[in-house]
């Protein structure tokens, strides 16, 4: 049992400040446990979004000592608790109250992306045939739990507020999952270049670093999509190669 001090951001969309709470913490506790304990004993009105406590629902996203993280997956032995621990809401989204932010912008963005459009069925019963190796690549992207930590850490959204021009790493991963799907026939590359603003990404890899599902966002989703944009818009030799290269 040890004493920990948490500096938790309390406030609403108008204003707020960091408030100190000191409590006892025991071995094995995660940050969310401490927040719940403070909520139960010292700050009954503190707003905090959570659900599964297992790192699978993506609800308890926050900034722990300045790093976007899931509160339920951050054990106290992973952070220095000899000094006060700072807990703040995500900066890339509007505050609702305390640690809760309004992430609805993400769902509006998702609606803008062209949906999955499969080729005609392979079999008379209306089903398709795919090889495992064809879907291995996009399988990684389907691990996303939509915690939006990648959106939060992305400086294009967080600092430059390009929410109307850039869809953010989460939706570049979503687009990659669709675009690289072996059955999909839709072309999303022109939108990626223009309306979805992939060119705003300057490959800082911050999104990859904070992903709790360890999706290799930058290397496996964003850069391959950037390369597809180069194929279509910036590579004269590539236009010729596109005619000659293997199809699939």
């Amino acid at each position: 049992m040890s004493t920990v001090t948490f500096k938790i951001w309390r406030g609403d969309k108008e204003s707020g400040k960091l408030v100190d709470y000191t409590t006892e913490a025991s071995e094995g506790m995660v940050v969310l446990d401490v927040v719940h304990k403070i909520q139960a004993t010292q700050a009954n009105d503190m707003a905090c979004r959570w659900n599964c406590k297992a790192g699978k629902c993506g609800s308890c996203s926050a900034e722990i000592n300045g790093k976007p993280s899931l509160m339920c997956m951050t054990r106290l032995d992973m952070i220095p608790i000899d000094k006060p621990v700072t807990i703040q809401p995500m900066r890339a989204f509007p505050s609702i109250r305390d640690l809760v932010t309004d992430v609805s912008w993400n769902f509006r963005v998702k609606k803008k992306i062209k949906q999955f459009k499969p080729r005609p069925p392979d079999a008379p019963d209306g089903t398709w045939r795919m090889q495992q190796e064809d879907v291995d690549r996009v399988q990684e992207f389907r691990k996303c739990i939509e915690c939006f930590l990648c959106q939060d850490v992305c400086h294009v959204l967080r600092d430059h507020h390009k929410h109307e021009e850039f869809i953010g790493p989460r939706y570049l991963v979503y687009t990659a999952a669709l675009e690289m799907h072996p059955l999909d026939t839709e072309d999303r590359i022109p939108e990626l270049k223009e309306a979805h603003g992939i060119g705003y990404c300057n490959i800082t890899k911050c999104c990859t670093k904070v992903c709790p599902e360890h999706i290799t966002i930058t290397d496996n989703a964003i850069i391959p999509l950037k390369e597809r944009v180069v194929d279509d818009f910036y590579d004269p030799l590539g236009w010729l190669w596109k005619i000659l290269r293997p199809k699939g």
């Binding site: 690549r137 690289m180 072996p182 999909d184 390369e227 194929d231 699939g248």
Partner: peptide, 12 residues
């Protein structure tokens, strides 16, 4: 990307 990443279906 150029040696294979452009493909959506590796089995082919």
């Amino acid at each position: 990307h150029l040696v294979g990443g452009f493909l959506d279906s590796f089995s082919k």
